[in-house]
Design a protein around this nucleic acid. Sequence first.
DNA 1: GCAAAAGTGTTGTGTATACACCCATGG
DNA 2: CCATGGGTGTATACACAACACTTTTGC
Lengths: 214, 214
Amino acid sequence: MEDGNPAVDIRIVLFTMVEGRLLVALHGDICRPALPRAAPGATASLDVEARRIVQVTTALHEQYLEQLYTVNARDESGWAIVIAYLGLICSGPEAPPLDGGWYAVGVLPTIGETDRRVIDYALARLRAKLGYTTIAFHLLPQTFTLSELQGAYEAILGRALDKRNFRRRLVAAKILESTETQRRDRSHRPALLYRFRASHDRETFLTPSWAGGA
Amino acid sequence: MEDGNPAVDIRIVLFTMVEGRLLVALHGDICRPALPRAAPGATASLDVEARRIVQVTTALHEQYLEQLYTVNARDESGWAIVIAYLGLICSGPEAPPLDGGWYAVGVLPTIGETDRRVIDYALARLRAKLGYTTIAFHLLPQTFTLSELQGAYEAILGRALDKRNFRRRLVAAKILESTETQRRDRSHRPALLYRFRASHDRETFLTPSWAGGA
DNA sequence: GCAAAAGTGTTGTGTATACACCCATGG
DNA sequence: CCATGGGTGTATACACAACACTTTTGC
């Protein structure tokens, strides 16, 4: 911040879902964890740079990336502009390795004030978008049971949902199709596996109600 | 963009409403109009800086200011980060003077690609927020008739609304209170004047439906 | 009395919510 | 046979959309 342009800093709130819990990636050693971040170069676009941060942080490519908000922070080293992103990746049965760690939201370690605000905002946005987009799908593998999907919703929202209403809504939205296969899990009736319909290419279905009414 | 930090540029999409038309402020001479803008200093916060731009552009203080989105632009002088804001001000019977001009949305002059994208986005956001916030009030004076309010909605949305449904909805929201006074306008029945209830301090009422349901 | 805007109700339709039981399996 | 999660239907309340006529005023 010596002269001219203020410092700019891209930070990613990277969520994943493991065993029905929503986790955030925090970078760095145990005593000073922080959101993955980088300063944008003079050549790459913001979105490209954000994507690069995800790839550097974990080996995986992100499934979903969305800009959240730009704030200014007076965090450690002076005054900076922070451009926050929300990223979602789908883990397998365990979270991918990371130079840092994955933390359950709500049980976060001590982090900077700005990082906390950004995470809160990212979570609020994610919750909101559950209601009118297919965003949750980016946290799940290609095929999944309806109970797994419902579990993801519940983990994000932090409250229980009614099973019948949930299923009815998803069916009504016509964004799922059942693979014929079942998964036999443990000692109970096997569950049907579903996948997303290719026609809804994981991005559309953004039609808030107020888009066309009196 | 010589080294280090990229250039940062705050731009404001400043709307006002005059005679039932939604206008945007464009700065600069006729042949090169552009959105009002400034580079943030190293001291002021983004929001403060955005507010200052509004005050410099018009004499008025803005009524409403909201950050929209951050994009990167390769507009005229290289690569820059553009932080876009949405601003609303309430004009009287005519738009306030301006070093530049007010243009009806939809009949904009030739402007930069980035400016156009930002204006489109601002308009989309404004339209969306009509549905679940009291944002439109910032375009109107302290007291107003229901027809004026409906006219503002229609100008923003670009389509007609049903008078009865509109009034019923506003009444149901319980954000209006009638002043006892009437306004006699021309040769027709006088209209009741309304104002916003102080309890809803022009900002709350942000309760999307998905905030609490199965 | 006429033009012009203000104001007012009802009905149908769809969407969200609450709620309880039977089914298929592994052990 | 029992424990576990998978799967199903109905009744109710509310929100939204469509729709037409009477009222008050200035001229």
